[in-house]
Amino acid sequence: MYPFALERPRDLNAALALRAQAGRNDAPVEYIAGGTDMVQLLQENVRRPEKLVSLAGLLDDRIEVGPQGLRLGAAATMAEVAAHAEVVERFPIIAQALLNSASPQVRNQATMGGNLLQRTRCPYFRDVGYVSCNKRVPGSGCSAIGGENRWNAVLGTSENCIAVNPSDLAVALVALDAVVEVGGPGGDRSIPLADFHRLPGDTPHMETVLEAGEVITAITVPADAAGLRSHYLKVRDRASFEFAVVSAAVALDMDGSGIRRARIALGGVGTKPWRVPQVETAMAGASLEPARLRQAAALAAEGAQGQGHNDFKIELMQRAIVRAVEIAGART
């Protein structure tokens, strides 16, 4: 860990002003909220801010369900959201994704905003003993390509980066068309979650579209995503406390025994939370007949590229979609 100064501004404007002095990513000034990821990155020397601006007490932590849908204050913890009665009743897939994440201790501490901004688990990003990581040191190369890449992405990759976005929550939220509310020196704005994370391309160190100093203030989920039949399926090597090998978030609007509309997103396979509209289109109007689901799920593999150890994810993610749709469709 490198030394840093911890700033505890009195209000959000003061926090924004402190952060606005700095650039976009891995700048010398960083925010810290729950800190569950930031502290690991500090300890491992992956991030070396000179100043940490604490957001504790400065952000909304309310959870509200109303006619407009769901609004999650950025400071609401994973545990609070997962246990919120109306979330559990109307947006169960969010609670499910959260309860499949991390451990109770981490969920008590980690926030909604921080969850969307957590950095990849790509081991080459997190081990500074590796010189090459374009995400950590732009232009230094990618150690994952040509290395052990079972953990890495098959969708949205570039020749510069194959790191997976690790969030479970974001996978469920992107399936529900969630929107990220952002505050910043230049005012407030709303960004659809689907557009919030960037593909790595030539700039894998830039992970989101946030501008300098901007902070997530809330996440909203539209009302039409409420009450859907849904399932969050997470495949992993052990039963708990592990990031996804592959995950699938599915929310179905059913018409009798047929699918009127499916919303499907994947985790563990994409460089960002990965929505699969082509699969959704193919499933619209379909029955839950396994062969039909399988055919539609196969479209998820469009553009997928394995790196050897992670080739299996291309098959596994299709199976995960089928299983999640079957489970969601069987719910009443």
Binding site: R121, P123, Y124, R126, D127, Y130, S143, G147, E148, W151, D237, R238, A239, S240, F241, E242, F243
Partner: peptide, 14 residues
């Protein structure tokens, strides 16, 4: 590269 307790999995309670 997986020299940590997140990527080197040991059994948990579950």
């Amino acid at each position: 590269p997986n020299g940590n307790l997140a990527e080197y999995a040991v059994p948990v309670h579950a």
